[in-house]
Simulated scan of single mutants.
Amino acid sequence: MNISDYSNKVNWLFNQFPVFQKVGAKAYKPTLDNTKSLISFFSIPIDEMSFVHVAGTNGKGTTCSIVASALTESGKKVGLFTSPHIKDFRERIRVNGKMISENEVVHYINMVQSHSFEFSPSFFEITWAMALAHFYKMDCDVVVVETGLGGRLDATNVIIPELSIITNIGLDHVAILGGTRKLIAGEKAGIIKKGVPVVIGEGDEEVAPVFKEVAEAIEAPIYFLENLQEVDAFQQNSNLAFKALDILLGDISGKETLYSNAISKLYENTGLFGRSQVYSESPLIILDAAHNPMGVEKLIRNIQLNYSYRNVRVLYGTSNDKDLDAILGLFPVEWKYFFTEFSNNRSTRIQDLKENSNVKQLNAKYFSNAKKAFTEAKSIESELDMIVVFGSFFLLEDII
C-alpha cells in the first residue's frame, strides 16, 4: 500500500458520509440503531470490553487523555477514542499513544465500501465502529471514549462503561442539544448508566439537580468535583481525571507518582495536541482549541492568571455556527488581535467579524489566509510578546 491509497480511502470516507467536522449539524444522526448495526457488521463483542465514557461541553479531550495516560502508566493497554483530528484521521484512534496503522484504516474502509447498507451511516458512526474493531483486535484492557456530540443519542452511547465522566455544561450546539444549560445537561446525562459511578466536573445549582435526578433514578453513584478558585482549565481537567482515577483504581500505592507521570508523559501516551499547548518557547506561542463561550472564557482567564506580565497577541478564527456576540464580548481590549478566516467552508467570514460591535473597540487586523495571519502575529515587537491561537480545530489545522 502506498500513501495515496490511504489518503484516497480517507478522502472517500469524508466525502461519502456526512461529517460534522465539515458540514456541521447536518451530519448529526439522532439514533443509536445505525451504530448497533455497524457494530454487528464488524462483529465486535462490546459487552466483553471495558470502557470509560466522557461527555461535556469543554475539556473532554484533555480529561480523556489524562485518564488514558494514567492507565497506561499503570501498566494497562489503553485504547483512546477522541475527536476531531487536526492533521491525520488516525489521531482519533490510539492504543497507548500509537495511532492505528494506515493499512488497518484502509482495510476497514474497504469492508465498508464492499458492503451495501440499508441505511446511511454518518462519518462519525463509521469511525467509531472502526475504532471499536481496532481496540478489540488489540485486546485493550480498557478504552477511554470521548463523546462526539451530546450524550444520550451520541453514537458512542452504546457502551456500558466502568465509569462515566461529565466535565461541564455550557451553551454550545444549541440547535441540536437545546437552548438552555439545563436541557443540554439532560442530553449529556444520557451517558449515565444503571449502577455505574459518574463523576461531575462542574455541577452548579442549575445543572446539578439534573444529574442527581438521573443518577438516583438508576442507582448510579454520583460524585461532584470540588471546584477550586483560581485554577486554570488544564488543572481543573486534571483534578477531574484524578478523581475519576481514584474511583477506578481504588487503593493502590504510588498514586502521586502515577499521576505525575501521567501528566509528564501526556503527549507520549496520548498524542494530545492543541489544548493549552506550548507550541514554541521563543516566541512563546500557545495553541488551544477553545471555540465556545465557556471554553474561551476559561482560556482567557488562564492566560491572564499565568501570563499577566506578557503582551498578548491573539490569532483568532472560528466556525460560522458560534455565538460571536458572547465570545467576542469576552476579549480583553488591551490585547492585540489578528482575525482570520480558515480554509474549511464552515469558517466565519472576515466581514462578519468586522461588523460585530464588540470588535470595533479592539486593536485588530484582518486576514483571509490563516498562514499569513500567523506569520504577521509572530512578528513580535518585544521579548514580552506572546501569541495565543484559538477559535477552532480548523484554524490549528491550517497553521501547523
Rank of each mutant, 00 (worst) to 15 (best):
G271W: 04
I303N: 08
N2W: 01
D246F: 06
I100R: 00
I86L: 15
V106Q: 06
S280Q: 15
V10A: 02
K243P: 01
K182W: 01
L249I: 11
V196M: 07
S238H: 07
G61Q: 00
N11K: 13
D325F: 04
A244D: 02
V106W: 06
F374W: 03
T348K: 00
Q113E: 15
V106M: 10
M111Y: 09
K371Y: 08
E102G: 04
E146F: 01
G170K: 02
P121H: 05
Y366A: 12
G75W: 11
S368G: 11
L249N: 08
K212A: 09
F242M: 06
N363A: 12
W128Y: 14
I160K: 12
P121G: 05
F117L: 12
K298Y: 08
S120Y: 12
S114I: 03
V359E: 03
E162L: 15
S276Y: 13
N2G: 10
N356I: 03
D154K: 09
G186W: 01
D141N: 15
A377S: 14
I400S: 09
F42H: 07
T340Y: 07
R90G: 11
L13M: 11
N369C: 15
E230A: 14
L258Y: 07
Y316G: 03
S43G: 07
S343P: 03
Q351L: 14
E205L: 13
S83F: 04
D246C: 10
G24N: 07
I109N: 07
I380H: 03
G254R: 09
F339P: 08
N345I: 12
K371H: 11
Y108A: 10
K98A: 11
E213D: 12
P30D: 10
I303W: 05
N269T: 10
I350S: 13
F367A: 10
A370R: 01
G170L: 04
Y223F: 14
F234P: 02
N306V: 07
S65A: 15
P84N: 08
F14Y: 15
E213V: 00
G24R: 04
V54A: 08
E202R: 09
I350T: 15
V199I: 15
N369S: 13
Y259P: 09
G178D: 02
A220N: 09
S253F: 13
N302F: 11
I39W: 02
I350L: 14
L353I: 15
W12N: 00
M49P: 04
E104T: 12
I176M: 10
S4H: 13
M1W: 07
D232L: 10
T167A: 03
E355T: 01
K372R: 14
S368R: 13
V143R: 03
L248K: 10
L284Y: 09
E334N: 11
T375P: 01
I247Y: 06
G329A: 11
S101Q: 05
E213C: 05
D385V: 07
V196W: 03
N239H: 09
D88Q: 04
P283G: 03
R301E: 14
G79R: 01
H173K: 05
G148D: 01
I222F: 00
I252C: 09
I350W: 09
S238P: 01
I387V: 15
G317I: 03
S319F: 02
E146I: 00
L330Y: 02
S308E: 05
